[in-house]
Design a protein around this nucleic acid. Structure first.
Lengths: 227, 227
DNA sequence: TCATCCAAGATCGTATACAATCTCGTGTCC
DNA sequence: GGACACGAGATTGTATACGATCTTGGATGA
């Protein structure tokens, strides 16, 4: 974790932590001690606190007063809501993207999909999940809607936590097909089709999660035993 | 500004500042010096910084390195994007709200509209703008979508800044009619109508702003002269 | 007179110190 | 033996101190 820009270190630390969470290297519920994080990055708690507050605002970590920061554990309800919000935003954003996509952007998305495949082949599942999310963010950027793109960025990050918690192992990671279909529709400038494919893709994604109303996943032994 | 809970003071300060911005008591571009704010609220800069960072994350204030915090001044482009994002989210949220609204919530919205009228009659235009925004937030809450409601809360706050910057004085504040129509549709449980009214209402709102591509509103003399 | 440079002041960026709060183990009392 | 209370340790919450960076005003020279 070499990162000694010394410029905007708080932001850099937040980004590094977010990336680790995104790639499932930091599991939901993990404790993020200020001292520990500060030592790792070589800065004082002041900077770490700023980074953690930033992440808390994005709902990637949860701050408990006098208890510290923990990687967030979205509830079932929150999990559903995140995808419902995405279902409101992304299909029509994909439609807008179809009307604007340039050849350069097409190539960029193409490379993105290839990277996803490569990550999967190498067994880097976490990285594949990250890239898969970034694909959605890229589409929002192509739509040239910075504000919506920001919101989607945040929702995608939270989705990554949801996937870490509620993914059903028995369902295969079949997203590459959907992303390919999306790319085709975008390349053809077919906004209606892009909107439709995106909507369907999100439904498929949700249905591959186990969001039934079982008891919540236990945070720790203590919470599991109902303290 | 008496506010000495001493519990979560950073959050309280952020809320107080956000409210002042929302009601147009703090104009876009105003400087928020850490020392000054800290003195007003009786806390150290540490706490003020946390509050300002929170507001920066919500895009209500802009942090310039080594220059301090300023009430944000959304660009024309950002102004348009905020309302485009709202147009994606709010109509379908209103539809969901229509399917769920209880009598108690109906009464609550009714009182809300009355408060808006009262504020306008008393010439408290800032407060009226605030209440008008909260009406939208309430609808998202009724839809029982906490995540979407949060996003809308943020977009509404930013809208308030946009209104402060781009409102055309010559257009009357004719929102009460739209809000009444919305309430009727919601009360009747007519989701389609609620969705339609909300979409139209947002279009009307945008068209009452002056978002033509004139030169950006000057931030300061320096920026106005192209430094 | 004008441009340039430099120093003083102001403001933010970060580190450190201390206070407040919580956790958890230990001891005591019933 | 079990329950309760208390205190040591650990962790976060806040204040303060110092360093870095930017602005501003005046002095200096051509």
């Amino acid at each position: 974790m070499v990162r000694h820009d010394k410029q905007n270190s708080a932001e850099a630390i937040a980004a590094a932590l977010a990336h680790a969470i995104h790639e499932h290297r930091l599991a939901p519920g993990s404790k993020l001690s200020e001292d520990e994080v500060g030592e790792i990055f070589g800065v004082s708690r002041t900077v770490v606190r700023a980074a953690l507050q930033h992440l808390a605002h994005s709902r990637l970590v949860e701050l408990r007063r006098n208890h510290g920061a923990f990687v967030a554990q979205p509830s079932l309800r929150e999990a559903r809501e995140v995808f419902e919000a995405r279902a409101l935003l992304e299909p029509r954003t994909a439609r807008a993207a179809a009307a604007r996509m340039s050849p350069a952007e097409h190539a960029r998305l193409e490379r993105h999909i290839q990277a996803e495949h490569a990550a999967l082949d190498q067994g880097a599942a976490g990285h594949a999940v990250y890239l898969s999310g970034q694909f959605h963010v890229e589409i929002a950027r192509i739509a040239d809607q910075a504000t919506v793109a920001e919101i989607i960025t945040q929702l995608v990050a939270r989705s990554s936590l949801v996937i870490a918690l509620y993914w059903q192992r028995r369902v295969a990671l079949c997203e590459s097909h959907a992303h390919h279909a999306l790319l085709r529709a975008l390349a053809a400038g077919d906004g209606s089709r892009a909107e439709e494919v995106m909507a369907e893709h999100l439904v498929t994604l949700v249905s591959s999660l186990d969001l039934r109303d079982r008891n919540a996943v236990p945070t720790s032994l203590r919470e599991a035993l109902g303290a």
